[in-house]
């Protein structure tokens, strides 16, 4: 995409936004009544036209069956990780002596895509016990409630690698 075109709206994301907003509208209205759907289509078109800008190449995701399958596997992995971490957190909170060793550690990611890094940081935050405080280049600063490793490589292996394994395929 040349620089002259880069200020124009991206048709693909415009259409995706419109469809997503329309689906949301229909879920919340709760009927397939013609009037409601037409009103929703008009409003969704207005909002998506105002909100959608150019879509730089680095934010684009190429769809393929393998990636979709990995995305599903990733969601399952994330759900299990969240559930397990919540149980560990419950054990910590209920233990009388409050066994925590908190600290902020530095980990590195191999992901190049900004969208992949965003999803990685959010996944880390969503799992109780680890909380991404700041991001600088390819380094994440993570508040970890139970620091049990001494060097950055080991922390990276324990916190990041599980998610990265899937995200590298999805956004890679």
């Amino acid at each position: 995409m040349s620089s002259r075109l880069s200020s124009q709206k991206d048709v693909g994301s415009l259409l995706a936004n419109w469809l997503g907003l329309l689906a949301l509208w229909i879920i919340f209205v709760g009927t397939f009544d013609t009037q409601e759907v037409i009103a929703g289509a008009v409003v969704a078109a207005l909002v998506s036209f105002m909100a959608t800008g150019p879509n730089p190449a680095r934010w684009q995701v190429v769809l393929s069956p393998r990636r979709l399958f990995t995305l599903l596997a990733y969601l399952g992995y994330l759900a299990v990780a969240i559930f397990r971490a919540n149980l560990q957190m419950a054990a910590i909170v209920l233990s009388p002596e409050l066994a925590i060793r908190p600290g902020i550690v530095r980990v590195r990611t191999r992901l190049k895509s900004p969208l992949g890094r965003l999803v990685l940081a959010n996944s880390i935050t969503l799992t109780p016990g680890t909380l991404s405080v700041d991001v600088e280049g390819d380094e994440f600063f993570i508040h970890w409630i139970n620091v049990d490793s001494e060097d950055a490589d080991d922390a990276t292996r324990r916190i990041v690698s599980g998610f990265e394994h899937y995200l590298e395929i999805i956004f890679g």
Binding site: F83, M89, V93, I100, P102, T125, P128, I145
Partner: peptide
């Protein structure tokens, strides 16, 4: 459990860990 966590934890970072995030689930 999240509310107990937010009361017992010693500093804001740990309160976020035990409080807002544990309540997400």
């Amino acid at each position: 459990l999240a509310a107990i966590g937010i009361i017992r934890m010693p500093d804001p970072y740990n309160r976020i860990q035990a409080g807002t995030k544990a309540s997400t689930l």
